[in-house]
């Protein structure tokens, strides 16, 4: 099975019903997306397929149509993506486990709404849980990324 992940073609030997997250982590060695709940209820595994956020722990790899972007594919060389940089600048993470998924949802939001309101941020991010409760900083980082042109 052939996938395009983070701009690179990869060849994997997977059953079509294997979750995309398994294929990424166990077969392709791309461990940036995290396993949290396994039932699309926490968002830690979020990646983009064709620019849209999906929960990779549930999506069957055989159902993937389009290029996959993970947290590992956001930076360009040493230059962090504006959302990643905003996460650092706002010191969002506490334990950090959810942030790969949080950042991918934020990237998807900003790609469609360059300057989101708090309501739009909440509507986009409600499926990404942070048990450390860093939500105020997540909002602040998304606003900062918007100011820095993440969605432009």
């Amino acid at each position: 099975m052939r996938l395009t992940v983070d701009g690179r073609p990869i060849e994997i030997d997977a059953e079509p019903d294997m979750p995309l997250l398994w294929a990424l982590r166990d077969l392709a060695g791309i461990t940036g997306p995290k396993f949290g709940c396994g039932i699309a209820a926490c968002g830690a595994c979020t990646v983009l397929v064709d620019g849209q956020p999906v929960r990779a722990c549930v999506m069957p790899v055989g159902a993937v149509e389009g290029a996959v972007t993970t947290i590992e594919g956001l930076a360009e060389g040493d230059a962090l993506h504006p959302v990643q940089q905003a996460w650092l600048d706002e010191q969002v993470a506490q334990c950090g486990y959810c942030q790969a998924g949080q950042i991918m949802s934020a990237v998807a939001l900003l790609a469609e709404i360059a300057d989101p309101s708090d309501e739009e941020i909440d509507a986009a991010m409600g499926g990404n849980l942070c048990r450390c409760g860093t939500y105020p900083r997540i909002r602040a980082a998304i606003r900062r990324a918007a100011r820095d042109g993440a969605g432009a």
Partner: peptide
């Protein structure tokens, strides 16, 4: 945007 039905429902 950022949370579609099809983010989780395949």
């Amino acid at each position: 945007p950022g949370l579609r039905c099809m983010t989780c429902h395949f």
